[in-house]
Design a protein around this nucleic acid. Structure first.
Lengths: 142, 142
DNA sequence: ATGTAAATGCAAATGATTTGCAATAAGGAA
DNA sequence: TTCCTTATTGCAAATCATTTGCATTTACAT
């Protein structure tokens, strides 16, 4: 998802391309890693000073609804937001520094799905999160 | 995890076997599906009337720390708590009724882990959640 | 039975997120 | 460009799950 496409989607659906929205999208473009709402506020504030939390949240909700952004609920209890990628992916999360990285492997396709069928469950989406130590943190023992 | 084992762990680690703790464990034993804190309060209240939310939360945290209970952060934004099972498992979550069921298949062991190695990431735990329609909900279109 | 520390209840604090409402800005029409 | 309409924003207050401080109570070892 690039900026042009994001703005195009907004326009298509009848939403205005406001400076806040553009700033939020810019911040996502510059950040390849999922961010919390307060981090997004901080970064957007540098572009659009005075922007309010309610604007951030309202626009994040909108961008999620439009499929431009998606939201992760990680173990830390916060919502993390990232730009939607074309490619399906999952995440590895460091238990020490909290960093979140994408991995483009997906275990769902390799998985034996008979159990879901037995239960009559119709899968639509799935999340796979791996928690552990990232390369920077795995040698410091604390 | 059965009740005797849970109480044993409490004792071993020097925590008291209070009536609240016993009631919370009882509720978990009777419920094979993950529950939210307010549901746990409701159910425990029937056994121990007057029990307070802070007692629920404090004890859930303790039981988590002792490995008796574990906590899921699902897409609905709430924490869900379940009794720790010996067997490793994951969850299927219905997007309509919100029901959560365990599945005992794990895609991690089948997964090619080279990408994690490339990134120098040391995996410790992982979560796999499948969202979709459960057998009861998949035929009602709303 | 008693003493002591741990556990609980209560009420207030916290912190992320949401909402109502009045002021402002985007973007189409004149 | 200017004007108009409606969506969007800022602000402050409300929500709602969860946490915390403190005085009281309880578990359980002596």
């Amino acid at each position: 998802m690039d900026k042009e496409r994001a703005l195009e989607i907004l326009k298509e659906k009848g939403y205005k391309c406001t400076s806040s929205r553009e700033a939020i999208i810019d911040v996502f473009i510059k950040n390849d890693t999922p961010r919390k709402a307060n981090e997004i506020l901080d970064m957007v504030s540098r572009i659009t000073p005075g922007i309010n939390f309610s604007t951030i949240y309202r626009n994040l909700d909108l961008l999620i609804k439009l499929g431009i952004v998606n939201k992760l609920n990680l173990e830390d209890g916060f919502s993390h937001y990232e730009l939607s990628k074309g490619e399906h992916h999952h995440h590895i999360i460091c238990k020490l520094c909290g960093s979140v990285k994408e991995i483009d492997l997906c275990p769902f396709k390799e998985m034996e799905k008979e159990k879901l069928e037995e239960l009559g469950f119709e899968p639509l989406e799935h999340k796979f999160e791996i928690y552990g130590f990232c390369s920077k943190c795995k040698h410091r023992e604390n």
